[in-house]
Amino acid sequence: MIEQVAFYILSAVAVLGALLAVSRRNLVHGVFALLLFFAALSGLFVMLLADYVAAVQVLVYIGAVGILLLFTIMLTEHVTGDDLRRLGVRGWFWGLLLAVAVPAVLILPAVLNEKSAKAAPIVVAQGNPALANNATQANTVKALGKVLMEKYVVPLEVLALLLTAALIGAVAVAHAPEKDASGKDTPA
């Protein structure tokens, strides 16, 4: 019971945050709405017993990505964050259509399947309590670390390389060209 209430509250907050993030004109408000969405999603991860992922979600998305977005807005748009242009009017109809159609296509099979459950029962749909208990035990940080350092060590190293490359690349791309005495840009 309490889990259902929590699920519905969290999903309502997530949907609300996402909607506000894509629809607010003020970009800074948009970022804060987006952070609300991230926080709600991290709560959902906790409900799914993935508490390590939830902590990483808070650390990376709210702590790092949010700040990065805010800094970019401060460096590019008006400091007040107001997006003075209209919302994109030209493509809104097709955009809305696609945005409704894609999830509808994704959801429909599940709904139809439920009605003709005998045709193709979704085996995984029922959360098996025994498995759930297993998951609780398997999901300690220790198990995750073991898997990460043994089975997935090569992807992990590649990821480290990717992050380093992204760090250096981001600095190189965003770095302002040096100005000489006359105030003109000199190529880097």
Binding site: L98, V102, I122
Partner: peptide, 25 residues
């Protein structure tokens, strides 16, 4: 709470994300 709950939520969020990608400039 079943898998479908989460899948439907995720599909809705996907739709909102698509809406933003397609309509905002």
């Amino acid at each position: 709470l079943t898998l479908e709950h989460y899948l439907i939520l995720s599909a809705v969020l996907l739709g909102i994300g698509l809406l933003g990608v397609f309509t905002r400039r």
